[in-house]
């Protein structure tokens, strides 16, 4: 097989990411105002406040989404918030449940009192609207089939007026639905999203329809700095930085070669 330019590019990227991932270099990241805003908002919530955490993502974006979710969950549990997990995408269900259980274990949080995982409901718009009227009617049982009223945390919760807000962990446009349909019930929306979705949500953040947003691996790494718990965000950030610089180098090389060829042709 004859090796073409693209094969060398692929090999270069593979090697670069591999080397940076094992290098273990620590990055000293400055915290952006967006990430700081999320941190401050969670800090301001009184102890025992109930926060819905919606895992609205697929498995494919897990390397980017998981560090964001884990950092936010850690802050939530550390700050003694009571977290109610759910998923509007089927794939987010198992991931969300595992993430919540693992993070809760770090803080000795008790299932049913400090956190609950409600599971998945099909048709996200109907689910969001229905929870606005009654969370119990939408989720009569939790993910493991326990009745709603048997869970101490859930018993006093009627609808959105009993929760501090929703934290949507999303890799697509699901957070928009929380704002559009949850907004009717004055539900406060926070978001942890992939970097690719930042520009989609910028107008909502600027208009105040979204309260705060942590985005991409950089956001996760910044949040880990804030809560002083280094995790997947900082590690991934190193690989992402090297890949970004590699892409920039390729763009420059591609353009230099393009202009040289054009000059020769003229």
């Amino acid at each position: 097989m004859r090796l073409e330019t693209r094969h060398w590019i692929f090999a270069g990227l593979f090697l670069l990411i591999g080397v940076t991932l094992v290098s273990g270099i620590k990055l000293d990241l400055p915290v952006s105002p967006d990430t700081q805003r999320m941190y401050d908002l969670i800090e301001k919530l009184p102890d025992g406040s109930v926060l819905l955490v919606s895992f609205d993502h697929e498995a494919s974006s897990l390397p980017e989404i998981q560090p964001i979710a884990r950092a936010l969950l850690r802050h939530g549990f550390e700050h003694k918030l009571r977290l109610v997990g759910l998923a509007l995408m089927a794939e987010g269900t198992a991931i969300g449940y595992r993430l919540m259980c693992e993070t809760a274990e770090e803080f000795d949080a008790e299932y049913g009192t400090d956190y609950v995982f409600l599971g998945f409901r099909p048709q996200y718009i109907a689910a969001i609207l229905s929870m606005g009227e009654s969370i119990k009617a939408t989720f009569p049982e939790d993910y493991l089939g326990r009745p709603y009223d048997s869970l101490a945390l859930m018993r006093p919760l009627g609808n959105y007026s009993d929760v501090a807000g929703v934290l949507s962990i999303a890799d697509g446009s699901f957070t928009t639905h929380w704002m559009e349909y949850g907004g009717r019930y004055k539900l406060k929306v926070l978001a942890g999203v992939t970097a690719a979705m930042v520009t989609t949500y910028d107008p909502y953040l600027a208009s105040g329809q979204m309260q705060a947003m942590v985005s991409g691996l950089r956001g996760a790494a910044e949040y880990e700095t804030l809560i002083d718990r280094i995790g997947g965000g900082a590690r991934g950030m190193l690989a992402q930085t090297s890949a970004h610089l590699y892409v920039i180098l390729l763009v420059i090389l591609g353009n230099v070669s393009y202009f040289l060829k054009r000059r020769r042709a003229n």
């Binding site: 693209r6 590019i9 692929f10 990227l13 890949a243 390729l250 763009v251 393009y258």
Partner: peptide, 25 residues
């Protein structure tokens, strides 16, 4: 399921790298 989906998604990085050299002019 998770590794398979992540792998397919990660392949995008290689295509982006190649496209950045050949197409982003």
């Amino acid at each position: 399921q998770v590794p398979m989906q992540s792998t397919v998604f990660a392949l995008l990085a290689f295509f982006v790298a190649s496209a950045s050299y050949r197409g982003f002019r």
